[in-house]
Design a protein around this nucleic acid. Structure first.
Length: 406
RNA sequence: GCCGACGUAGCUCAGAUGGCAGAGCGGCUCACUCGUAAUGAGCAGGUCUGGGGUUCGAUUCCCCACGUCGGCUCCA
């Protein structure tokens, strides 16, 4: 219980200077410089993994005309969770989902079956007016960034694509060592669009993909999105509560409603199938899970400060700055603790703020152009030439490898 | 949104039958110039969440709002 409190991402987020919340914006998180460093490191990895998996990245507007949301079905099915405004006497809605905007990109040119599968990712910021009682740190907010993608494909490509999404999710979750992930298949809810036949086909396609991926799952009847059934991945927080992260939703309805088409082999127009999917789910929620999973001690490649340089006395600050420059030019995130505090105090603060590596530099190091390395949570120290240290630290801070291109 | 609890300094928390607001950490200043988990001293910092009410007097009691926490429900 006490341990859970220590690992609570809300506490760690404040203590580590990652993000904050304010009364002026309930459910709207503010990300501080250190928080953005973590997010950007995560996104660098995310982008490399998605390029390797054959995705292109897009971006669509935060706000679009209400008429689009009426056509997509969001007006009828999701209005209560949406924010609206009027500009020049035209009604707009702030997007709660990225799909309708994404389809406008799709529709901006003609598509052939040869284009498929077309995988269009978007790190889309969505706003949802969640009920006040459900807000919960970064786990449940009113604005969040989905690592979204829409895959347009032929009906016969659906299963392969869903298996591909499942594999990408497993691969990326494996990177973080998540072992307590459970999977659900959610079927048609009461409030929904599309025909019974569509839903049956879609539900069995998802089940088939799960079977093929040999992924155990539980059935969650009536919990699908209003436009299609979905596979969800849930991860536990420190309190044992589970949070939905990855999702893979099959959608035959929106292509119909928004009139998407492609030209087939037969030279006729057809409806594409649309798969909506996320891997991390929401960056905010995923970051919260990472913080709790690692108890704030993020792996070096994600740490906001990877290396803290600790000068023994003020006269060593100049050399400490040289060390910082040398390491920064290798792409490392480095800070010099130039406060007039004792070495012990600076080491302690480095440990408390969970910096993976500390380099103490004093008389000896200045003379020898070296550093003394201390790793997080480890009392042992290791003297190294500066150039050796740079090589070693770069190796220890290397982001995960992505799926090799074959 | 519903049920319950809570809201005192940047953070963690004391406090008083209703009578001048407290500590530690953090911040600032000064001294120290230090070799691997807290150097010392001094100073500043508060509309006691906001708005009404009761009262000679409200941070304290009552009402309302907002926010937070726990749960329900809902989701990424």
């Amino acid at each position: 219980m006490e341990m859970a409190r220590q690992r609570d991402h809300r506490r760690l987020g404040r203590e580590l200077g990652l993000f904050s919340f304010h009364d002026e914006g309930p459910g709207f998180p503010f990300f501080h410089p250190k928080g953005m460093r973590v997010i950007n490191a995560l996104l660098d990895y995310w982008r490399r993994e998605h390029v390797a998996a054959g995705y292109e990245e897009t971006r669509t507007p935060i706000m679009l005309e209400r008429t689009l949301w009426e056509r997509s079905g969001h007006w009828d099915n999701y209005k209560d969770n949406m924010y609206f405004t009027t500009i020049d006497e035209v009604d707009f809605a702030v997007k709660p989902m990225n799909c309708p905007g994404g389809t406008l990109i799709y529709k901006s040119e003609q598509h052939s079956y040869r284009d498929f599968p077309l995988r269009m990712a978007e790190l889309g910021q969505v706003h949802r007016h969640e009920m006040s009682g459900v807000l919960h740190g970064l786990f449940r907010v009113r604005v969040f960034t989905q690592d979204d993608a829409h895959i347009y494909c032929l009906p016969e490509q659906v299963e392969d694509e869903v298996v591909g999404v499942i594999e990408l999710v497993r691969r990326m979750y494996g990177t973080f060592g998540f072992d307590r992930v459970h999977v659900e298949l959610s079927t048609r809810p009461e409030k929904s669009i599309g025909s019974d036949a569509m839903w049956k086909t879609a539900e069995s396609a998802l089940a088939a993909a799960l079977e093929r991926a040999e992924l155990p799952y539980t059935l969650n009847p009536g919990d699908g999105a209003f436009y299609g059934p979905k596979i969800d991945f849930h991860i536990e927080d420190v309190m044992g509560r589970t949070w939905q992260c990855a999702t893979c939703q099959l959608d035959f309805a929106m292509p119909e409603r928004l009139d998407l088409d492609y030209v087939g082999e037969d030279n006729q127009r057809h409806r594409p199938v649309m798969i909506h999917r996320t891997v991390l789910g929401s960056l905010e929620r995923f970051l919260a899970i990472l913080i709790e999973h690692y108890g704030g001690a993020l792996p070096a490649w994600l740490a906001p400060v990877q290396v803290a340089v600790v000068p023994v006395a003020d006269r060593h600050i100049g050399y400490a700055q040289q060390v910082r420059c040398a390491l920064e030019s290798e792409g490392l995130r480095v800070e010099v603790d130039s406060r007039s505090e004792s070495v012990s105090k600076k080491i302690r603060d480095g440990e408390v703020s969970k910096v993976p590596f500390m380099l103490v530099v004093g008389e000896r190091e200045v003379e020898q152009h070296s550093v003394t390395l201390r790793s997080r949570g480890n009392r042992d120290t290791q003297p190294l030439a500066l150039s050796e240290a740079a090589t070693a630290l770069v190796a220890k801070c290397t982001p995960p490898a992505v799926k090799p291109c074959l």
